[in-house]
Design a protein around this nucleic acid. Sequence first.
DNA 1: AATGAATGAGAATTCATTCAT
DNA 2: GATGAATGAATTCTCATTCAT
Lengths: 231, 231, 231, 231
Amino acid sequence: MPRRRAPKTAPRREARQARSRATVEYLLAATAKVLVREGYDRASTNRIAEVAGVNIASLYQYFPSKEALVARVFERYLARLDDALTTCLARIAEAPLWPGLEALLRTFFSLHDDDPALHRALLVHVPQIDRVNPMLALRERMTGALTAYFVQRRGSLRSTDPALAAHLVVTCAEAIKQRAVLEDARLLHQERFVSEVLELVRRYVVARPVSAARARGRPATSGGSRASRRR
Amino acid sequence: MPRRRAPKTAPRREARQARSRATVEYLLAATAKVLVREGYDRASTNRIAEVAGVNIASLYQYFPSKEALVARVFERYLARLDDALTTCLARIAEAPLWPGLEALLRTFFSLHDDDPALHRALLVHVPQIDRVNPMLALRERMTGALTAYFVQRRGSLRSTDPALAAHLVVTCAEAIKQRAVLEDARLLHQERFVSEVLELVRRYVVARPVSAARARGRPATSGGSRASRRR
Amino acid sequence: MPRRRAPKTAPRREARQARSRATVEYLLAATAKVLVREGYDRASTNRIAEVAGVNIASLYQYFPSKEALVARVFERYLARLDDALTTCLARIAEAPLWPGLEALLRTFFSLHDDDPALHRALLVHVPQIDRVNPMLALRERMTGALTAYFVQRRGSLRSTDPALAAHLVVTCAEAIKQRAVLEDARLLHQERFVSEVLELVRRYVVARPVSAARARGRPATSGGSRASRRR
Amino acid sequence: MPRRRAPKTAPRREARQARSRATVEYLLAATAKVLVREGYDRASTNRIAEVAGVNIASLYQYFPSKEALVARVFERYLARLDDALTTCLARIAEAPLWPGLEALLRTFFSLHDDDPALHRALLVHVPQIDRVNPMLALRERMTGALTAYFVQRRGSLRSTDPALAAHLVVTCAEAIKQRAVLEDARLLHQERFVSEVLELVRRYVVARPVSAARARGRPATSGGSRASRRR
DNA sequence: AATGAATGAGAATTCATTCAT
DNA sequence: GATGAATGAATTCTCATTCAT
């Protein structure tokens, strides 16, 4: 089993024609499937090609390594989340501190269910420090955006260190969601759970905790439907 | 590479004699070393035996699989943390809600540096859902203990769901520490960082946020030295 | 077919017990056989292991690569020649220029027939510039020894550059033998052929070409049987 | 890697049109380049096509195999040498034994530097017994021509076996040049080196070694510029 | 005539694990 | 009880070559 010292992840040849694009799709679908059913370690390139019904050599024409395949699957999986968060960030650009942040968190928590099993597999099996790990990139982008968001609302922010606050909020929110996905994804649909998490964040972030009544006012722009459900 | 479907982890034979015990020590030390230097995937039993200077057949006399070796290393690595937390829990058995919890958290954050590289390797490479993962066990025990702790102090607890509160506190604390270990272990020594984290937890946990002055009173029993350093 | 960038040739583990030594022998024999029958390119490690009746993994326990196997076979094959030449060099240490050189050349030409097919395969298929090529080493040693031999007999040497003379003599002798092995190994047994070659060398090396009669006097110490056969 | 048992080398289709011819040129240039830079083994048809900027299927439209490509490159590389030797042979058709032979050898030694790296790659990596190896063909032609040349000058020839003499001369000359190309191509430009080699041949070939003065007379027709440099 | 795509076959190498002494 | 040796089963990755459009 000759292992590459530094697994390459750059795409090899781009699929242009319809047929090859289909091949790539089969491969990615098979990767997800194998990842879910057999785990990262057992997901060999041969197995993936077999499940995809694609020749192993074709696999290597489009992906230079197993890592590249998994990274691509991961990226795709995160793309929706990325889009949703980016959209939400735009929407709350003018919102006050808390309603905006609440909307962002609700968006984050609500978008988890494309394929929970795949989500689990990706979280658990993909080594987390990999520079390629697209979740790291997303996390960093989010931390940056949130820091900027906090800086612009310094007046309402309790902490004097917006970057640190953003770091902690992102870390906690991600961890809470991650554990829920791994252990019981339904939690993320339960308003009892979600609002408890929101409370945790709000009390940390917002400068002078407003009265509970005001705090529970509807979030700025998004997640409204969900927010109203609470009551 | 014939992979066992269900990796065994039970110890095979008690190493009672001195020589046997030495062999086991060599093996565990080698496992840690290889894990750190080459990562989980590259840590083969052959390699470990070689580094340990132990015959591969002897390795299998004491450990039924690679997983068993790694699990044992992990357990050992967590043993100190486990001890410290258990001790601390005993000490704060009678303490009020916050000082006790602060002491517990400080203990948790301060005990991270036996071998950061090993810590990193274990965190990153060992699949996290593994039933064998001793960190899951520790986490569950801690969540249970904290739930009990909260139940006993219901009056001071803000949340009406002690179990959920414990879950969130454990999840966040673990995630924050884990990220620090992976990215910059020195953070856990910086009072600015630690007290920000404590603030996050305190505001969530404690019923009526006491004034800052009272909140910063010294913790109940342990972590005192560190706490006193603050002022 | 993941190819090593720099093929390793250092031996891996030495075979100590009788059983493993036998395994190594089988492997080397199989390497020679496959080399002869199928050529260097077709001689895969899998094929060699199969022919040897040895598990492929065992092969890799003793040899880190195909190159290492071939190099070992080559070394062994050259060992006899090396020995014979070294012995002869000792014998002619005190001999005059020509008889000594003739003895050396006769030794060189006569020792070719352990396994002509293997010889052919080695000559043809093993890339010649490979630093590992043991023939290069032998050639260099011989050139050095011959240079020293010439220096000590400067008076009788026609050329004023012993190193260059040695270089040319070694080059030509090797090439002539090599071509004979490749095309018609019997030539090396025909005195007509051999003495023509000797004449070529003698006329180049010896200062004042002695008369043919004297030149054909018996060589100093070795190769005598063969030499006497001539007349 | 499905290897043909008997690699075909016949050209598949005449490249009559301009574009086709250009394609062929690109392919041959790429073959040479890859051969030099990566060696024979690594020179895959895919790689060659890629470097040539030619579709792999087009490659197979003009060359039936990798061997055919390499053989064609080899032929081209030898064509100049072949031409030069043929021309020289014509020129010395009426020359006396030695001056003619000297001219031929000087021509042979002087024509080596089109692309030493390619020369080296071809010498080292192309299996030498290959029936396709164009150097064998050239060598045979030269040996034949030289035999005829010797036969016509029997009177001046020392040996009584012109064919054997030609064989030895060709073998030695080729070997000397080959080693020079592999180890230090500049040697072939140094008159000290070349004239030593010439001396070796002259003493073997010419019946009654003429005096040094006469032997160094200018060669018959070609290589004169170089020869004149000597004095 | 050219090209994008596909592929069967196989090469090198390693792993986890068990035997026989 | 320790050790040298052995091994079945994978794994990654490439090659020469052919199709289908």
